[in-house]
Design a protein around this nucleic acid. Structure first.
Lengths: 159, 159
DNA sequence: TCTGTTTCATCAAATGTTTGATCATTTGGG
DNA sequence: CCCAAATGATCAAACATTTGATGAAACAGA
């Protein structure tokens, strides 16, 4: 990154490298999971996250699903159209608050998530083996510390 | 992740946690950069990556740009429509190979990338401060090792 | 030289994301 | 009790991404 430092003497090269590397690594992992596990089965990574959340935690309100799976409510709303159309989950108006949506897996969705998650986790395992057990724990610790520190950094979060 | 382990005894929880944490951390960083730096200026993160690559390495063929900025040629092709329309770069047919494209920043693009990168790097610095210098180096080392190991894992890569 | 294959770029259709606006419902203060 | 403000979901427009198909140019071998 010599050019950046030459033309902008104030550049923080170490911070740049950290963010760059973080992104490259994550892109690789996500691309691999998506193209070797999800797309061949007609799924997408965001769709998987939503179904997985519903499988783990059971039926819940859409707002909660959005928080758990890390997306905005608008994005979830669009995504639900596809998932509902494919018969993987059902959308119902909540009884206690008629603005809210109650989401639940259909039987088909329940069966599907089991199989897909198995394949997903096998690929995750293959990635994990690149590191020693101790290194994996350290990586997770560092990433958590990074996230925790973001509050001080006044980072912008999703609604 | 108790449910996953109960219903699927073979689940590798540690691998799952690693991938999950990696994704959560990266999402936070990207979301912050995109929403606090790029979107307010009418840019996107992928557009920034392309312009940044051109700024660092100078005019180059589109194929190279795609590799450097980590996207498929089809995705780059679509993205170029926006960037060219906004007058930030120019697309020209290469002379030696009339199939290939030669990309270069316009003067406007050159000026714009300087300012945006400065703001971008300031946010990167804020994130980096969440870790100690030694921890940053260790994080980068672990991520690089993870990427290096992917070859053994037979991971799928982008074309 | 001609033909079959590879390579570069683009297109098409489907998906998912963002921000900002809109609509309906709920809540809370006067 | 009523009306303003907050909240949940959706819509609209613009973007970016994927896979697979298509067109055009370069290459390689007979």
């Amino acid at each position: 990154m010599h050019k950046a430092e030459r033309e902008l003497p104030s550049v923080n090269a170490e911070a740049m490298r950290m963010v760059l590397t973080l992104n490259r690594a994550t892109s690789m992992v996500v691309y691999d999971l998506e193209s070797s596990v999800h797309r061949p089965r007609g799924w997408t990574w965001p769709g998987f996250r939503v179904l997985f959340a519903l499988w783990l935690a059971g039926p819940m309100e859409a707002k909660t699903t959005a928080e758990i799976s890390g997306m905005s409510r608008a994005a979830l709303s669009a995504l639900l159209n596809t998932l509902e159309r494919d018969g993987l989950l059902s959308r119902e108006r909540a009884t206690h608050d008629r603005r809210a949506l109650q989401l639940s897996l259909t039987d088909e969705g329940y069966g599907a998530i089991l199989g897909v998650f198995r394949a997903h986790n096998r690929r995750e395992s293959a990635w994990a083996e690149a590191l020693e057990p101790e290194e994996r724990r350290e990586l997770v610790r560092l990433l958590n510390k990074l996230m925790a520190g973001s509050t001080d950094a006044q980072a912008k979060f999703r609604n």
